[in-house]
Design a protein around this nucleic acid. Structure first.
Length: 922
RNA sequence: GCUCAGAUGGCGGAAUUGGUAGACGCGCUGGACUCAAACUCCAGUGUCCUCAACAGACGUGCGGGUUCGAUUCCCGCUCUGAGUACCA
């Protein structure tokens, strides 16, 4: 009976579906374990061989945890809202729901073939009204809460209103857009419109005029993480800065908690680093400068208050309020010209031309509170309006950007730090944070550290500033001028936003006739008929961004069919949060921040019991393509084999990897591949055409896409699973090379043969030998260690070695083979199920327990002690492992090999380490 | 520029973390089986010393160091990849 993977895999996939083998429910008698994959966006191209890598790893871990007695939640779903479906709709008029549905069906079909143990009863789709009801619901909660900095927590807006009515806002310490101080009386005297406008500044989901990334080509605004190098991440379209009225989420309020949370997370340091940099905490001080002949006070943020005596000018961001306040009439014209220039510059230009120094003098002078000197105030685009106060004190001697500016506009450069060596300021600034203060009045001779401390305290004492922490993290812009996304549960009355009643949820996405933004520049929902509330108020035209639906989906899996709550308390108390989360590192600054924020917010409300959503995170690497090339001799239709190409002038041409085997081109297939190659001629070596190759991104244009369906057709799902793991460490990027798959396929056939006596399945019930037990226990120990440490790649060799050894021992004993089948079941579930059932078991191997290994079977009676001289192994000596150090030493000295290796030298020392290596030092 | 990760045969990679470097697989070479092919099996395969050795030397990007012993730890470089970027 040959190993017929096709029948076996079909049979067990059907069986799992019929028996609902992987359906889970709350079971308090068992410990829970929640394994989650980042759910995919179902694109039209389907899965390539790189996509399932993480799913296979998480599936192995899930299956292993089940065998270890855990109740495992392992769900899957679809992040179904997104741009590609909508772009396709704009081009073809096809409703995005239809293409999305089609793509999901295709994804599901491909996923099923790989044999995952997902509980599909819990599937979620972000575009399903039953699902996005809870996305809208969460938004309403964010609208109805504000962030109290004193307790670092979200609190109901109703409480805030109560405080306003009692004592105004003077004692409120909130994360807030703008706050003018008012009393209780003033509050009560305000109209509803005025009150609502003020409350908008406090809400966690708020509507405000903000500088946004506007992408004209996509016709929508984008969040910071959706923009890279001034281009949109999706589509690479130019992005510009624009002031627009948009919904935002007050993510920045949670900056400190997002940082503190890392302490209890098992995430890779590099990923934590990426998030830390993105949050960008910096500790410094606000310092207020008086302005000469003006009432305006100029506040700057600095991390280097120690350098205050070196300030030789101030710089304002062009968009800053200060720019209007501090521009003098004499400079008006010049400033206007400059502001015009800045406004015209795209974000991309600004970023790519960082070295170009521009600026204009405002006409005003600030007074340095420590030297009382008047220092000129400039305006320049190198200062950002969105960070700190939008104004800086410039210390050209010790900041390279200020230095460049001072050089260009010939402003004084005053050194205030001396590092013991002569600091040369003729070419560059000295930015380091060590040395002694000079030219700095009262703080002369202090160290930088002391000076920072002293000035900060002094500023505080004089009431001209205070120490402050700034974060780079911005609030998340939450509006998108697109169709295919969640509608906001928002209507407008008197130009102010109000939330729909929760009983009206979900507010379903309306049908429209065209998916392009309207000619008037309004979002597509502007076309929807009757897009208003029952009492005639207009509904919001924008839709929510991609990250809205993906921010809390892990909670919905816990209780996916609950129509009354996002997640029931019972389900949440049991499943708590995700124990293991697998996905790409590209979500570090997007989804993984938003999800943490969203979850913390729900935690503040008491909806969820854990503050952090994902306890352990693993970022699987990308599988790259391995492209093949042919070499066309320039000006001909002749192609030369790799080894001979240097003899000709050639052009490198990508060739479909599917017509290349072991880097040898199928020349006939090449001729029929594309019409232009029909008459191709070849210069062969050894009768073969050898192709060149390179590792590149897997993509259609490189003709290097490998489809998992083809691999499964040819080798089976178990082989695909094993091979994907075998390729290399889970977290590493690695190229796909189909050549190597033969090895693991061969292993499965060999493993199968262990159970076969000719054509019949047979195992013996004989007692295993010591040797066989050793193979078993060694293998089980290794597999357990590997899975616990996520080094799945090294498990495959362990299985191969085990199989080879048992094959050599001609071992077909049940006592040995049965536990190994269980250990293999996580990796290759189909073949394991088949053998398990042939072994006479009536229930799934999923119900089995992971085998226990014992150290006693692993120790040998006699051990070949490697004897090394100065660290180099020279010979081996067989002795019992139980020998004492004294016995070993005696035996080594008595060994006949010693004399030769000592070569007349004396033994200075003999080191016998617990790992049983003897090192003789001569 | 800053931060992080990495560099091991022809290729992918192993070495459970300071203890026999190159496991395992691919590829390659030779052999067995076969009329032949496929399948399967066996042997060899880091480099160098004119062949072989169960003889030796050298070998984990480069240069130093610590150690009885370093792919592993420390210092200084080079290169590659990723993140981020006028964040004051």
């Amino acid at each position: 009976m040959e190993y017929n993977f096709k029948d076996i895999e079909q049979k067990w996939q059907d069986n799992w579906r019929e028996q609902q083998t992987y359906k889970v429910s709350v079971d308090t008698s068992k410990p829970k374990f929640y394994v989650l994959d980042m759910f995919p966006y179902p694109s039209g191209a389907g899965l390539h061989v790189g996509h399932p890598l993480g799913y296979i790893a998480s599936d192995i871990y899930s299956r292993y945890k089940r065998l270890k007695g855990f109740n495992v939640l392992h769900p899957m779903g679809y992040d179904a809202y997104g741009l590609p479906a909508e772009q396709y709709a704009i081009q073809t008029g096809q409703h995005p729901a239809i293409t999305t549905e089609k793509n999901i069906a295709r994804y599901r079909e491909q996923l099923d073939k790989i044999g995952f143990s997902f509980d599909w009863h819990r599937e979620v789709r972000t575009c399903d009204p039953k699902y996005y009801k809870w996305t809208q619901w969460a938004f309403i909660q964010m609208f109805n809460h504000w962030f109290n900095k004193d307790v670092q927590k979200a609190e109901p807006i109703s409480q805030l209103v109560a405080t306003f009515e009692k004592e105004g806002n003077q004692h409120i310490n909130a994360s807030c857009s703008e706050a003018e101080v008012f009393t209780a009386e003033e509050w009560k005297a305000m109209s509803e419109k005025e009150q609502q406008s003020i409350l908008l500044n406090y809400r966690i989901a708020y509507l405000a005029d903000t500088m946004v990334n506007w992408c004209p080509k996509l016709g929508t605004v984008l969040a910071n993480d959706e923009v890279k190098d001034g281009l949109s991440v999706r589509g690479g379209c130019p992005v510009e800065q624009k002031n627009m009225r948009q919904w935002s989420l007050r993510v920045s309020a949670y900056a400190q908690r997002l940082l503190d949370g890392f302490d209890n997370l098992e995430w890779s340091d590099s990923l934590k680093d990426i998030q830390r940099n993105w949050i960008g905490r910096s500790q410094g001080a606000d310092i207020t400068f008086d302005v000469k002949d003006s009432d305006v006070q100029l506040t700057v943020f600095t991390t280097r208050p120690d350098t205050i005596h070196g300030v030789s000018f101030m710089v304002l961001a062009p968009e800053s309020e200060y720019t209007k306040q501090l521009s003098t009439p004499e400079q008006e014209k010049e400033i206007a010209t400059y502001l015009e220039y800045v406004a015209k510059r795209t974000e991309r230009e600004r970023q790519s031309e960082v070295k170009v120094v521009t600026g204009v003098f405002s006409g005003s002078y600030a007074i340095n509170p420590f030297t009382n000197e008047a220092i000129p105030v400039w305006i320049s685009e190198y200062v950002l309006s969105g960070y700190g106060t939008g104004a800086i004190m410039a210390v050209p001697a010790h900041d390279s950007r200020d230095y460049a500016f001072a050089r260009k506009f010939e402003l004084p450069i005053i050194p205030v730090i001396d590092n013991g060596q002569a600091i040369d300021l003729s070419e560059s600034s000295y930015d380091a944070k060590d040395g002694k203060m000079i030219n700095s009045g009262i703080i002369n001779d202090m160290s930088v550290k002391e000076a920072i401390q002293f000035i900060a305290e002094e500023v505080d004492k004089r009431g001209i500033g205070s120490s402050k922490i700034n974060y780079r993290l911005r609030d998340a812009i939450f509006s998108r001028q697109r169709y295919w996304g969640e509608p906001f549960p928002v209507y407008y009355k008197d130009e102010l936003p109000y939330m729909l009643d929760e009983s009206k949820l979900p507010l379903e996405l309306p049908e429209i006739d065209k998916y392009l933004p309207t000619e008037t520049g309004e979002p597509p929902l502007g076309r929807a008929k009757n897009w208003q509330t029952e009492d005639g108020f207009s509904l919001e035209f924008n839709t929510m961004p991609g990250f809205a639906g993906s921010s809390a989906y892990y909670l919905r899996y816990m209780d996916p069919h609950n129509e009354n709550e996002l997640v029931s308390k019972e389900a949440n108390d049991y499943w708590e949060n995700v124990d293991l989360y697998l996905g790409g590192a590209e979500h570090a600054t997007g989804h993984l921040i938003y999800s943490r924020f969203w979850n913390m917010f729900l935690y503040d409300l008491g909806i969820v019991c854990q503050e952090e959503p994902f306890k352990k995170l693993i970022n699987q690497g990308m599988i790259q393509g391995r492209s093949n090339f042919v070499y066309r001799i320039v000006g001909s239709n002749t192609y030369v084999s790799l080894g001979l190409k240097d003899q000709h002038e050639t052009t490198e041409i990508h060739v479909d990897v599917n017509i290349v085997h072991n880097d040898v081109l199928d020349t006939e297939a090449f001729r029929t591949w594309m019409p232009e190659y029909a008459n191709a001629e070849f210069i062969l070596e050894d009768g073969k055409y050898t192709c060149g190759w390179a590792v590149e991104k897997m993509s259609k244009s490189m003709f290097n896409v490998v489809n998992p369906d083809n691999i499964i057709e040819q080798y089976g799902a178990d082989t695909l699973r094993l091979y994907e793991m075998f390729l290399g460490p889970l977290e590493a990027h690695k190229p796909w090379d189909t050549q190597g798959i033969e090895g693991v396929c061969k292993f499965l056939r060999k493993f199968w043969r262990l159970f076969m006596n000719g054509e019949t399945f047979s195992v013996s019930d004989d007692e295993p030998t010591k040797e066989e037990l050793k193979v078993l226990h060694k293998t089980v120990k290794k597999i357990e260690y590997d899975i616990e440490n996520f080094s799945f790649n090294t498990s495959i060799p362990a299985f191969m070695i085990c199989t080879n050894e048992l094959s050599t021992l001609k071992c077909n004993k049940r006592a040995i083979l049965e536990p190994i089948v269980i250990a293999l079941a996580s990796y290759a579930p189909h073949i394991a199920e088949e053998i398990w059932s042939l072994l006479g078991h009536k229930t799934s191997v999923t119900m089995a327990s992971f085998p226990q290994w014992e150290e006693k079977y692993l120790v040998e009676d006699n051990f070949e002690y490697p004897i090394s001289f100065n660290g180099k192994v020279r010979f081996k000596l067989s002795m019992p492992l139980t020998a004492t150090n004294a016995e070993i030493e005696k035996a080594v000295k008595a060994s006949p090999d010693m004399e030769r290796w000592l070569d007349g030298k004396d033994i200075r020392k003999m080191i016998i380490v617990p790992k049983k290596i003897v090192n003789v030092v001569v």
